[in-house]
Design a protein around this nucleic acid. Structure first.
Length: 354
DNA sequence: TATGCGTGGGC
DNA sequence: TGCCCAAGCAT
């Protein structure tokens, strides 16, 4: 059911909306898809340079499907949530092999592709094909929670279901592509998390939170939880050529599938480090030089990273194994690296100062 | 249903 | 500074 809500929003969008984002040009399902995946839990300004570089390197779904995974992760390095990149390529292979290189144009089939859920499927259908489909991202949740004064945290199923109902109800038959962009733009530009600009909002007339002067109460906030503290050793091993040993991380878990510094059991004492390191790597190392550690905060925990530098005392026994490889710093930078590790390699002097 | 998954921005 | 959050999804 299309109502006044959509009409007002579209009129506002024509004047004030964002019409020139990179994925608005040469619009096709592939570009829309990649942009939607990058934009999951990630702000527009952060995504833009990644999207540009990604499209230069992987201009179509065939290029993505046939690329080495390290190359894909390398273009994702620093963007976070790396399962998105792995799922993206997996889905690209499915599209090439099972769909003849053609994107599905309906939400049901799109949702069978890994990494595409209800909202992303709808966004692709609306943005790429101009078909009516309701999205519900963080922006839409905020707009609708305020407009209808829906109490509670959207992580709760009951709250989420209400929001989905309203999202479906407001999405119009006409101009669904513009409407989808419009409601996201409103959430990003006017109905912001803090200090919404209600005076210039086209929907303030019917907004229940605004009528009550309670926009701050919506959407409800997530219940607080204590973040556990974790710790780990990060090992910087250099050989006689100044190359650094990197280790491919397991496919799941934090920084899954990325290249990183080898990790050792945090329970090890500094005096046990050398032996553990030699055992882990199968090579002889010097005594470790401890570098002052730093704390890295994730969504669910704090990680205290304790770097230790060792030098190789014998030539490397590791050939080109699958899990461990020697890299010069500039070589390493084209790999999928976690942001803190990338920083450490780009600014080696930081390792000494940490 | 709850949790794991990254990084940077904003206050 | 520490905390919440952002164009969510998979398990």
């Amino acid at each position: 059911m299309s109502d006044r809500f959509a009409g007002k929003l579209l009129a506002w969008y024509d004047q004030h909306g964002r019409h020139d984002l990179p994925w608005h040009f040469d619009r096709n399902a592939y570009r829309v898809w990649v942009s939607e995946i990058m934009l999951q839990q990630t702000q527009v300004a952060t995504v833009i340079p990644y999207f540009q570089a990604f499209m230069e390197r992987f201009p179509d779904v065939q290029a993505l499907a046939s690329a080495p995974v390290d190359d894909v992760l390398g273009h994702w390095s620093g963007l976070g949530y790396y399962a998105r990149a792995r799922n993206l390529q997996k889905a690209a292979i499915t599209i090439v092999e099972d769909f003849g290189g053609e994107f599905p144009d309906n939400p049901e089939e799109l949702e069978t592709l890994t990494g595409i859920g209800r909202s992303t499927a709808a966004a692709i259908v609306a943005q790429a094909y101009g078909k009516r489909a309701a999205i519900l991202d963080g922006n839409v949740k905020r707009v609708l929670a305020r407009y209808h004064a829906i109490a509670g945290w959207p992580g709760q199923t009951a709250v989420l279901n209400q929001l989905w109902e309203h999202a479906e109800e407001h999405t119009p038959e006409e101009r669904p592509r513009d409407y989808t962009q419009a409601i996201m733009d409103l959430g990003a530009m006017v109905c912001t998390r803090t200090r919404p600009d209600c005076e210039s909002c086209p929907l303030s007339n019917g907004c229940q939170a605004y009528a009550r002067g309670e926009t701050r109460l919506y959407p409800g906030s997530k219940p607080k939880k204590e973040k556990p503290e974790k710790a780990t050793w990060m090992i910087i091993v250099e050989d006689e050529d100044g190359r650094i040993l990197l280790e491919r991380r397991p496919p799941s878990g934090i920084w899954g599938g990325l290249w990183s510094l080898p990790e050792l059991d945090p329970a090890l004492g500094a005096d046990e480090l050398q032996e553990a390191c030699e055992q882990h790597l199968g090579m002889s190392c010097s005594e470790p030089e401890l570098i002052s550690g730093f704390r890295h905060t994730f969504s669910h925990y704090h990680l205290h990273i304790q770097p230790a530098r060792l030098a190789l005392t014998q030539p490397s026994k590791i050939a080109d194994a699958d899990q461990h490889r020697w890299f010069h710093r500039d070589e390493a930078l084209v790999l999928g690296l976690p942001a803190p590790i990338r920083t450490l390699l780009t600014q080696p002097e930081q390792a000494a100062l940490l």
